[in-house]
Design a protein around this nucleic acid. Structure first.
Lengths: 346, 346
DNA sequence: CTGAAAGCGCTTACAG
DNA sequence: CTGAAAGCGCTTACAG
């Protein structure tokens, strides 16, 4: 049906092996023959069959991407399109394609990964999230299959898995310190899903900053929610209903912050006058909140492209030393934070 | 290296062909043999090689997704994660995987599609956008390769390509009428990229509504921008600087609306008191704008899943009649629109 | 109900 | 510099 290497060979009056060599641009083929073969390919509109190549080569030129689950909310976080853009850009440059996991649950995804790996459907994998009790990484590790994690491993020793991450601990510490330097002492924390490692790191950074500032950690000021924006809304209700509501807030994710801001606007709390907020990610729309939010830019695109760099190293040299890349973060000051001023009304 | 069908065959004391039949769960194999073979597969940890299967089967069980370009802004629009979620969910149910285009430019993408099609890398394709002077569809059409478009074709006759779309014309007409029923007569329009068909449809709907309401179409009230939110900001500056600024606004995309709202807040125009706004898409964060925006829900998820349904029909029966599915839309009233009230100051 | 053989469309030693 | 042959790991008529 489709035109194959044999058709080209026949037309160019050479053997199929020769055609194969001109596809690979082997130096052992004469320029004349190359020319002739290329012409034949052109005329016939020949394109190599992907699977035949992959089968013979034992390599697929494709990278598998594993996402946390297409659960409505998680996936709509602009974080994912942006990492994928980073991955995609770098992959394209290297002539690699992208294969996407589609499983909704952790089990489905595990099954998918096994198929990808054992079925040799991809040459390497990038994991877009890291969580506690993860099954995927131990499996990949055991198989010695090239993969890189965006985030950091939790159950596995860090020096054993190649990963690209921000220093989320440091970032959270920094923003908390920033708030404390602004004079705030009642600083609350709204974290994401506790299963995710990033949440743990945020929390540690938050706590350490408080301790160093001599502020006692108050557990009622710490609240977690995994449903991004809706979560943000519930969390803020909880916090603002406290006897002694916070005057400042560290929020794990910009999307949550949108929810928080919305709820605060509804309840008439004015930002930053009554409450300072700083959050994480700096996705595209973050600058468009009301007021524009102060947030930590974690350079999502770079997270993705660096991950691909690491993956290629892994793929080229299967037992290269695992490495860890930290992508720097940067505080983007906008208008959701303000120096603490004691309330005048008693 | 990896365990193959032969290893299983040997272990189970059957021929490779028998193993193959067990994999396919052929009714012609005795239960006893099936059992034995399955046991062997289990013990050896056998997983069929994807490429070998695809090669022999001439089918890949994967769907190609072509995105408009990973240009920062376009791709960060939550529209895409959401359609992909729709596609992914349905694809997973049917045991299909997803392959993503990575090209940045139209030419790169064309090259990629050719590879996908000719290299038989995917069984079908879903196009996530439709634009004027598109090269992709005529190519796919000529090749008789199964594909479906999300949107509607422009250069090609509609009845010739299977597509899933909203009635964007009607939706735009409806929102404009809504605004006009609220008493507005100075209704402006901020459209997206003029290359995209949806923009054209929006515009036609807008114009027709005005005409039917006996309002003269004023070209200075019509403005296009393709850079989603930034575009929204520039567009609104342009409009508000007019001698006779509009009192109502139809905006092509919720993200643009975020930009518009941001700019309006900065310049002290209060919504909906001084300006009514309605836009399109109803992505997840749309309800979190200040004020919450009135928008048209276009059921993005359904757009994706219906597209896959259509694609499967196409794939099963290559020359089935092209069909067109219209996903209904729905006006979501929130707080960005208000009855027109003449300004009191002269 | 099962097996031997050919075939899917490539690549790559091996030989010349 | 080029070709014939074997092989990558499956599937599927064909035969029994």
């Amino acid at each position: 049906m489709a035109v194959t290497i044999k058709d080209v060979a026949q037309k160019a009056n050479v053997a199929a092996s020769t055609v194969s060599r001109v596809i690979a641009n082997s130096s052992r083929i004469s320029t004349a023959t190359k020319e002739r073969v290329r012409e034949a390919m052109e005329e016939l509109g020949y394109h190599p069959n992907f699977h035949a190549r992959s089968l013979a080569n034992q390599s697929t030129k494709t990278i598998g991407i594993v996402m946390p689950s297409s659960a409505k909310v998680a996936f709509q976080n602009p974080f994912f399109p942006e990492v994928i853009r980073g991955i995609s850009t770098k992959a394209y440059q290297k002539g690699y394609g992208l294969y996407l996991s589609t499983g909704q649950t952790e089990e489905e995804r595990f099954e998918e990964i096994v198929q990808m790996v054992e079925g040799q459907r991809v040459d390497g994998i990038v994991l877009l999230y890291s969580r506690k009790n993860d099954l995927l990484m131990p499996y990949l590790q055991k198989k010695k299959f090239p993969f890189v994690l965006i985030g950091r491993p939790y159950d596995l020793p860090e020096q054993e898995v190649t990963h690209v991450n921000n220093d989320n601990f440091k970032a959270a510490k920094m923003v908390t310190e920033y708030l404390s330097l602004l004079g705030h002492r009642q600083i609350a924390f709204i974290g994401g899903n506790m299963e995710y490692v990033v949440t743990l790191d945020h929390m540690k950074g938050y706590k350490q900053a408080l301790e160093q500032a001599g502020i006692k950690v108050d557990d009622s000021y710490i609240v977690y929610h995994d449903e991004l924006e809706e979560g943000g809304q519930e969390a803020i209700i909880e916090l603002m209903s406290l006897q002694d509501p916070p005057t400042a807030l560290v929020v794990a994710d910009d999307l949550m912050t949108f929810g928080v801001l919305r709820m605060l606007a509804d309840t008439g709390v004015s930002i930053p006058d009554e409450l300072s907020i700083v959050s994480f990610n700096n996705v595209m729309i973050s600058e468009l909140s009301s007021p524009p939010m102060t947030t930590v830019d974690i350079h999502i695109f770079e997270l993705g492209s660096k991950a691909v760099d690491c993956l290629f190293e892994k793929m080229l040299e299967k037992d290269s030393e695992p490495k860890s890349v930290i992508v720097p973060h940067k505080l983007i000051k906008r208008q959701s934070c303000k120096k603490y001023t004691p309330t005048l009304n008693p």
